[in-house]
């Protein structure tokens, strides 16, 4: 139980994959200009991280070490296809908008990273928790970015107009550079805080 708590705290806070390791921003950052898409992507990512971590952990004793990366990739890819099929069948509109990005969850370094660093050496139960919390730790950062990008870039939240007519949309926020700047500012704030804590 204590172990679970420890992992959760680490993955969401101090050892957060995005802030501390800058991992896995590749595939998902691209959809953070619209909040709704980000939510779906993050849910998919949490699902895939948790389950692939568990599966790799279950198989860990039999996987030949030379091809372990290929095996993990195969497992991850299978879960991603599952997510893709489910999206297509039950939320077709969102699936249409996300296009190829769902497929790119496969190469999200977080999933691979957790499989390599954690699942290969730990039991299935705790690996599941690790995958789940890593996914959540990653997701809330991206959701915050998406929230601000959509708000500033389009003046909307979840597609609903919240800014008045006085608001001039910052188009740059919806475009690619916006995400880079946003993430940099986020890291700045969080790291700055951590440094302050350490020195005091």
């Amino acid at each position: 139980m204590r172990k679970i708590k420890k992992i959760t705290v680490a993955n969401i806070g101090k050892n957060n994959p995005v802030f501390m390791q800058i991992l896995g921003i590749c595939s998902t950052l691209a959809v953070t200009n619209v909040l709704e898409n980000t939510v779906v992507m993050c849910l998919g990512l949490i699902f895939v991280t948790a389950l692939s971590n568990t599966t790799v952990s279950v198989l860990r004793k039999w996987i030949p070490s030379r091809i372990r990366m290929m095996v993990s990739t195969l497992i991850i890819a299978s879960y991603v296809i599952l997510v893709d099929i489910v999206l297509k069948a039950f939320v077709p509109d969102i699936s249409r908008q996300l296009g190829p990005y769902v497929g790119l969850i496969i190469t999200n370094c977080i999933i691979m990273g957790r499989a390599e660093a954690f699942a290969l050496n730990n039991k299935p139960g705790i690996s599941f928790v690790d995958g789940l919390t890593s996914g959540i730790g990653y997701s809330y950062v991206l959701l915050a970015i998406a929230f601000l990008r959509e708000l500033m870039g389009s003046g909307t939240i979840w597609g609903i107009k919240v800014m008045g007519d006085w608001w001039v949309n910052w188009s740059i926020m919806v475009m690619a550079p916006g995400a880079f700047f946003m993430l940099a500012v986020f890291i700045w704030v969080v790291k700055g805080k951590l440094i302050k804590e350490e020195t005091s």
Binding site: R66, S78, A89, P92
Partner: peptide, 30 residues
Amino acid sequence: MVLFMTGISAFFVSAISVVHLSTKETVRRN
């Protein structure tokens, strides 16, 4: 190594195929 890879691929591919075939109709209707 080869057997392991083949086995695990076969397993996952068939699992996915089952899901795919069972949702095919829904996707088409969508």
